[in-house]
Design a binder for these strands. Sequence first.
DNA 1: GTCTATAAGTGGATAGAC
DNA 2: GTCTATCCACTTATAGAC
Lengths: 208, 208
Amino acid sequence: MARQTRQRILDASLAMFNAQGEPNVTTNHIADELEISPGNLYYHFRNKDDIIEQLFARFEERMDAALAAPEGRLPGLEDIWLQLHLVFEAIWDYRFLYRDLVEILSRNRRLRLRFARILKRADEQAHAVMRGLSQGGVMRASSAELAATATNVLVIATFWLNYAAARGDKDEHQAIRAGIVQVMMLLAPFLRDAERLHLNNLTRAYID
Amino acid sequence: MARQTRQRILDASLAMFNAQGEPNVTTNHIADELEISPGNLYYHFRNKDDIIEQLFARFEERMDAALAAPEGRLPGLEDIWLQLHLVFEAIWDYRFLYRDLVEILSRNRRLRLRFARILKRADEQAHAVMRGLSQGGVMRASSAELAATATNVLVIATFWLNYAAARGDKDEHQAIRAGIVQVMMLLAPFLRDAERLHLNNLTRAYID
DNA sequence: GTCTATAAGTGGATAGAC
DNA sequence: GTCTATCCACTTATAGAC
């Protein structure tokens, strides 16, 4: 049963952090929600930060999987679409991390380093995908443009949900699709005419 | 002297919020820093949120000024450069708002509406500038691309400092220049060859 | 493993004297 | 306008019984 309670705490914490924001959820709230005592919670975790670290480890796994280069062949536009889905859904499932990213990272040196590592991997993957598109003759960009675009892809992916919230978007699930479109549109102007037009039409259909 | 103390509280709050993050600065900390009593602070402000609202009003003025269309003539690339400076410096001076944007907005309906208004103005201004470039023949983009790019400009500008912090950048001042470059590079692929090349070279010089 | 009880501290906020 | 004193609510975290 030890394992069970531990997992239940992690699951409830994740749900409550995502719903109410990590700063607004105390260890007591979590214990209340699960109808266990605060003492019990502290038997399983040293403190709130310990819970966050365990959730981060789960998230890290998800991201590492999503960022893995999918195949041996050159990636096409459809592969990117799929990979962006995996990334945005991982972010969505652990969106509390992103909502208060700077605050959470400022409190914990280990998480800071691990998050920087994820960003580094994402940057490399973005570069690899765009190099693939270039080699496939689908995309054309200077090396400075490619590097800048990779960075912009990361920023949009990282903060899109926050932007949607700040803008006051109602339908949060719709925000994921809109975010993917935004990232794709970063690539649009570098594409060959046929693909560029195709993307312009596709995105319109995707949002409605 | 009333006015003096009130202003001193606002100034100290801004400095401390920016340095330590708004959630980590209490009304007691502010009073301590100014060597006044907590009671005195509460004579001048109803509560912490009241202080934040007053600071937001200052920020709003700065942004409104920065987002004003500068002249009667069509804007060129240099105008954009200047305007981005004004915007990024306003954000820098009130960066505590952006560090915990979602959390701060979630607590205060009025700020939520006012921030959404700023975003709307920024979006309109981004559109106007890019329309100017298009009319001047410097830029070429479909209407879907233009809209997507305007949105991406806003996201990068809004969250660039957070991204720099998450990435672990040391020199925060340098981050402003890098942010401006990132936004400019969003426009690069839409530019006429001459300007596009010019920008590629310019940005390299700007970062070093 | 889980609970009860509680210590120790923090933050927001107010009353009333000066 | 400003200070002292203080209250209340809440949070983290631990000790010790079961």
